[in-house]
């Protein structure tokens, strides 16, 4: 059998604030590139077909399942993963701290993807209703938490950032 001619392409992008370039197999997914070439291992593989949200990253501020996003499409993009949230001295972002404080983490496998979606919502500066938050976060599957404490974590952080009191009940 003929080996399929592998094509490579060089992509230039910004990963967590740093300009980088890499020559990749054109068939590689962004998940593959981030995990294998950059060791950003917070990007998890749960289904590799865009169903579970574990590989979610921010691309130019918008969330994507990196498993169904080709690595070569990253050209010129600004990509953020969970690794990029922590400050230089190891400071956690408010949303990471909220996930910890609200016991929103169990096995932790869906956590990175969830936090990155939460970042997108929080950075919009908007105030969402519970229903809206549920819908906006529904691209992520979690089997441990029943989503309950994840909602609490995102909601509390949202109100804190908005400088508003969180409504009770």
């Amino acid at each position: 059998m003929e080996k399929h001619q592998i094509q490579y392409q060089t992509v230039h992008f910004n990963l967590n604030g740093k300009d980088v370039e890499k020559t990749v197999d054109v068939r590689a997914s962004l998940t593959d590139m981030l995990r294998n070439d950059y060791h950003t291992l917070s990007v998890k593989k749960g289904c590799e077909v865009g169903e579970c949200g574990a590989c979610n990253v921010l691309i130019d501020g918008e969330t994507f399942n990196s498993c169904i996003y080709l690595a070569v499409w990253a050209e010129g993009k600004r990509i953020r993963t969970l690794e990029g949230l922590m400050g230089p001295e190891g400071e956690l972002s408010d949303i990471q701290q909220a996930f910890i404080d609200e016991a929103a983490i169990q096995c932790g496998f869906c956590t990175p993807g969830f936090i990155m979606s939460a970042v997108e919502l929080l950075e919009s500066g908007r105030e969402y209703t519970d229903e809206e938050l549920r819908k906006l976060l529904s691209g992520h599957l979690c089997r441990c938490t029943g989503y309950e404490n994840i909602l609490r974590a995102v909601k509390k952080t949202m109100y804190r950032r908005l400088g508003k009191e969180m409504p009770t009940a």
Partner: peptide, 13 residues
Amino acid sequence: TRVDAREKATGRA
């Protein structure tokens, strides 16, 4: 707080 919470919240686990 969970003893592994920080590792899991930072993607280092």
